[in-house]
Design a protein around this nucleic acid. Structure first.
Length: 170
DNA sequence: ACCCCGATCGTA
DNA sequence: ACGATCGGGGTT
């Protein structure tokens, strides 16, 4: 816990805005720490690529909860993906963390890809629903805003490709 | 109970 | 560009 930890208000905002501003922020998970290099926004019931597009289910329920919670799901039967829940409670949205440049444990190692990221840090569904605003060793720290990034279509989806909601540090 | 498919990754 | 891979979510 430090005074530079991101508070609830940071996450309780427009998801695309949060996805952009999360670039360069520091993710801490146990002994690991690194700067976020790539994110994607998934926004509400009207976003066909969002897990909550067809309403609340057992899997996506945490997306409907308060901003700042972790949302981890399993994909392709073998990988996990880490998201941070955003916006008002009851509005299902989250930011997928797709890239991380490690500073601690293995400095300089660039984890590019959400599956590789979770596999390396050891993040699983057990880590879903954690409140990153208050948890002891799983949180986000403020860091200088990164204004230089690309916006592209999101990766690996079949619907909603028209939205340029993937953000990559240049 | 069970079938189908995916917010991926690694190799070609 | 494409195929391997398989757990479990969503529907029966």
């Amino acid at each position: 816990m430090t005074d530079t930890r991101l508070k609830r208000e940071f996450f309780d905002r427009d998801t695309v805005q949060v996805a952009q501003e999360l670039l360069g922020k520091r993710l801490v998970f146990g002994p690991f720490a690194g700067l976020i290099t790539e994110t994607e926004a998934y926004v509400g019931q009207d976003d066909p690529a969002c897990h909550a597009a067809r309403g609340k289910t057992a899997r996506n329920a945490v997306m409907f909860e308060r901003a700042g919670l972790s949302y981890v799901y399993m994909i392709y039967g073998m990988y996990h993906c880490l998201n941070i829940v955003t916006e008002n409670e009851g509005f299902p949205a989250a930011v997928l963390i797709r890239g991380l440049c490690l500073e601690k444990d293995e400095p300089g190692l660039h984890l590019d890809g959400p599956g590789k990221l979770c596999r390396h840090l050891g993040i699983t569904r057990e880590d879903s629903g954690v409140d990153l605003v208050t948890a002891e060793d799983f949180y986000l720290e403020d860091a200088p805003l990164i204004a230089s990034f690309d916006a592209t279509s999101r990766i690996g989806i079949k619907q909603g490709t028209n939205k340029l909601w993937r953000f990559v540090v240049t």
